[in-house]
Design a protein around this nucleic acid. Structure first.
Length: 858
RNA sequence: GCGGACGUGGCGGAACCGGUAGACGCAGCGGACUUAAAAUCCGCAGGCCCUGGCCAUGGGGGUUCGAGUCCCCCCGUCCGCACCA
């Protein structure tokens, strides 16, 4: 447990060095440095009011990179700011009567202090908060530039509508089809909204993923799937008794002869038209519209359809009529909002066909199957095969059949080969107060008019109330009423605000010149600093934030803002911080620090004495109360201990399990390091003393020290922080074992302690400075270069070689490095254990891998 | 449902290109110091028979002189799915 009377006084020491760094401006980035630049960025936080362990992990990782790169001689930009618009501020306003602006600004102040207590090497002079007009004015102008460039348009789209609160709900606010606060059944509504044409860049966003070599593969794959390029055919089907046609999109035109139905989205214009004269269908459409807008909900819901009685004529077989259904699983936003179903070769179509008694005709024969007996049971066949039951396509493979049928339908003018994208344009309108106002004006005579540049920024009014349902901007008595900039007549401001992903799509560029009022960022500064060399944040942002930022960077480039097209050169996605959960018998979650061990070894809640059971470890969340407050940990053990724990054990990309025992272990190591310097095991020579003669033991230790420098450097380059910590611990274990107390031992001990301080510098910067000072230096470790290993100490003259018989380890021997294969063989066969394992049989073969193993096969 | 990842001792994790599985730490056990405890230091430690072996990397197959690592099948857990950030 932490004790303030320990010789290493964490509180004072950490505060002292934080003050020194700040006074000396150690971490200010310079634009005129001769050093190479390095821009390291952690995803900026939403100012919820208190930092959580996820922040501690994220910012510790970034700080290690920043400090390490600085020591390696880079001119480092390492900024921090606030993603300050968002829904929680409005919730606070509604629930607790605090104005979102006040709430947000107070939260920022509190969190800034908490971050500062972590000793992070930020250039705080570059801090930004996205909710301030100094920030968002630039994105309003950017939006208008995008508008001019044709990247912005307005269209109607579907939203979750809460009829009681009179507001649009986020997907997470829809629980089982009802509004989270009102409990009212959620409706889908069409609203006119602003969209950014991210699909214009779909090809490039997809292709360029290949160039992002320092991104995790899984993020690239997730983006690839998200963009979802698919090649297929748009195909028009004639309808019986109607002059118009139904256009569907399919990636499987080869299965057309197995078609059993067509299905259109409940939001398809045809569905709306038919519903007008069919109360049953209208009811079905309304039911579908209560389902919510999220894909996960649609895909997992029971597949349901409504037979419109309308028939579509098969495009290849004259006279073949196919029923047209309205189906809840067809998305209006994807393709044409209409599909044809081939039950034999698509699972969803098969489920649908079974439910509504539609025919299941196989048309692709799996390799080796018999055409006469092949039938589809409970599972659709979506693999390769040979076409049958398919007229002119019979005998072809799937790919050939696709080509042939597409050729014919294109020639007949009924179909068009198309590339379809899963990616949809980015809807940026939000019917919310706490966001950046969209800078346009609606005029009854001129239509949509952009706010003239001279009138920017459109400021968010602060005198609003939250007592009525709906958007406070709409209720404001004066704000939305303006004169039209074009005709001067009475007009109305857009009361929607931007999606908060808007702010986070360009903040990395704002940090390049955060103080400029005239432009979002200086061109020269952006050219110098961008792209971000290393970006670090949670895997939960793998698709949206990162994709939007990639799109924004391209859009900004095309509007002349900057030169790069990819914002983040390297990406590290960290795992979550997890903790054991605790519950009482009646299911109430209990905070870990309220759980005590009773005398008989069971767990109980501290206040009430109620029995508590420990559950599995899960992501720390307020709702499950399995949280540990970083502020408390830092106050008790210090920032270095918390940072060390974050870096030890788990690799950064994996989930990390927070444990009391683990933080204790880190705390013990902090103190152990401190004691090694405060009370060294052997007398230390003065700094800079020439190396005396070394004993064999001292030389061996020196080899360990230099090998550690080498491997820790490699580990940090690859973000293997847990391994780096292990290597440093190995080295300090070695220092602790040093027995001799001659001059050579003292000299090597000093070298080892100095190297220890320098290697832990990026991880535990306060302790490292304190050790460095205690070792007699009057310079700052924060300014010291990264240590270099002596190459002469990295090579050993002997190696340990494993000897196997039939692949099983039987002995290990010491051999000269790079010994001849013959020598290795002879040495291996001379081992008694090897002879015993061979049991008198002759060696059939001997595999020698130099410096590693000898495998004798008998 | 679709997509993605992960699975190694009691626990977190090491193991580079297929070459000594379990580095480093946590918990545990034994000892030293202490009146005692805490702290600290030293030692032991995957499992099973115990001379020496055998079995072990979610399960089952395969390739190889040799597989945690490569291939196929299966099981389990977690994450994302467009208005949370």
């Amino acid at each position: 447990m932490a004790r303030t009377d320990d010789r290493y006084n964490v509180k004072e020491t950490e505060a002292k060095w934080q003050g020194v760094w700040e006074r000396r401006g150690c971490f200010l980035a310079a634009e005129d440095s001769p050093k190479p630049k390095y821009y390291v960025l952690e995803m900026f936080p939403y100012p919820s009011g208190r930092i959580h362990m996820g922040h501690v992990r994220n910012y510790t990782l970034g700080d290690v990179v920043a400090r390490y790169k600085r020591a390696k001689g880079f001119n480092v930009l390492h900024p921090m700011g606030w993603d300050a618009f968002g829904l929680p501020a409005e919730n606070a306003a509604i629930e607790r009567g605090i104005h979102p602006a006040k709430w947000t600004r107070e939260n920022i102040a509190a969190m800034r202090e908490q971050l500062k207590s972590m000793g992070l090497s930020y250039d705080w002079t570059r801090e930004v908060a996205t909710c301030e007009p100094e920030y968002y004015r630039h994105e309003q102008r950017m939006f208008l530039d995008f508008l001019k460039a044709g990247l912005v348009y307005r269209k109607e789209s579907w939203v979750n509508w809460d009829p009681v609160e009179n507001t649009v709900l986020a997907n997470e606010q829809v629980i089982d089809g009802r509004g989270w606060r009102s409990g009212a059944l959620v409706e889908k509504r069409r609203l006119a909204q602003w969209f950014l044409k991210i699909t214009d860049y779909a090809d490039d966003l997809l292709d360029s993923l290949k160039t992002l070599e320092r991104w995790p593969d899984r993020v690239r794959v997730m983006q690839e799937n998200w963009i979802g390029r698919s090649e297929g055919l748009r195909l028009r089907w004639a309808l019986t008794g109607r002059p118009d046609t139904l256009e569907i999109f399919t990636t499987r035109p080869d299965t057309l002869f197995g078609a059993a139905f067509c299905a259109i989205s409940p939001n398809h214009p045809l569905a709306a038209e038919l519903a007008a004269g069919d109360a049953g269908l209208a009811g079905f459409v309304a039911e579908c519209n209560r389902m919510g807008t999220s894909e996960a909900v649609l895909e997992t819901a029971e597949k349901k359809g409504w037979d419109t009685r309308l028939k579509a004529l098969h495009p290849l077989v004259p006279g073949w009529e196919i029923p047209v259904y309205v189906a809840n699983f067809v998305l209006m936003d994807y393709g044409t909002g209409a599909v044809f179903g081939c039950p034999a070769h698509d699972q969803r179509d098969l489920d649908f066909a079974r439910k509504y008694g539609l025919p299941v005709t196989p048309v692709v024969l799996p390799p080796g199957a018999d055409a006469r007996s092949f039938a589809v049971g409970a599972e659709a066949y979506d693999g390769e095969g040979t076409l049958f039951n398919s007229g002119f396509l019979d005998g072809l493979g799937v790919a050939e059949a696709k080509a042939k049928v597409s050729d014919r339908l294109e020639a007949e003018g009924r179909g068009t080969r198309t590339v379809n994208w899963r990616l949809r344009d980015w809807g940026v309108s939000r019917q919310r107060y706490w966001g950046c106002p969209i800078p346009v004006i609606h005029c009854p005579s001129c239509g949509v008019v952009p706010v003239p540049e001279r009138d920017l920024p459109v400021r968010l009014p602060e005198d609003v109330t939250f007592d009525k349902p709906g958007n406070p901007l709409d209720h404001h008595p004066t704000w939305k009423h303006v004169a039209c900039p074009t005709c001067g007549g009475a007009a109305r401001r857009e009361t929607d605000t931007f999606d908060t992903f808007f702010e986070s799509s360009w903040y990395f560029a704002r940090y390049c010149s955060p103080k400029r009022d005239d432009v979002a960022f200086g061109r020269a500064a952006a050219d110098y600093w961008l792209p971000v060399d290393q970006y670090i944040g949670g895997i939960e942002h793998a698709v949206l934030h990162l994709l939007y930022s990639r799109f924004f960077t391209r859009a900004m480039r095309d509007c002349g803002y900057l030169a790069v097209k990819e914002p983040f050169d390297g990406l590290l996605t960290q795992g979550m911080v997890c903790h054991e959960t605790f519950k009482t018998a009646d299911g109430a979650w209990v905070y870990p620090d309220e759980v005590v061990k009773t005398d008989d070894g069971t767990l109980a809640e501290a206040g009430t004495g109620r029995a508590v059971v420990a559950g599995r470890s899960e992501k720390m969340s307020k709702s499950k109360r399995n949280v540990v407050d970083p502020a408390h940990i830092i106050a008790t053990y210090g920032a270095d201990t918390a940072r060390l724990f974050m870096l030890s054990d788990s690799p950064p990309e994996r989930d990390l399990e927070w444990t009391e025992a683990g933080i204790d272990g880190a705390w013990r190591y902090v103190n152990r390091l401190w004691r090694m310097v405060a009370a060294p095991a052997a007398p230390l020579p003065a700094p800079g003393t020439a190396m005396p003669d070394l004993s064999a033991e001292a030389l061996k230790l020196r080899r360990l020290i230099h090998r550690t420098i080498a491997v820790v450097g490699e580990d940090l380059e690859r973000f293997h922080f847990n391994k780096a910590v292990a290597r440093i611990r190995e080295m300090t274990n070695g220092l602790g074992e040093l027995a001799a107390d001659d001059a050579g031992a003292g000299w090597v001990l000093r070298e080892g302690l100095e190297i220890a301080a320098r290697l832990i510098g990026p991880m535990m910067p306060h302790l490292a400075e304190e050790m460095w000072a205690a070792l007699g230096h009057d310079t700052l470790l924060a300014d010291a270069p990264w240590p270099e290993a002596d190459p002469a100490l990295l090579v050993d003259d002997t190696v340990t070689v494993a000897i196997q018989v039939n692949g099983k380890l039987r002995a290990t021997i010491e051999l000269a490095k790079d010994a001849d294969a013959k020598v290795a063989e002879a040495a291996a066969l001379a081992q008694p254990a090897v002879a015993a394992a061979m049991a008198g049989k002759p060696a059939r073969k001997i595999v020698v891998v130099p410096n590693r193993i000898v495998n004798v096969v008998v």
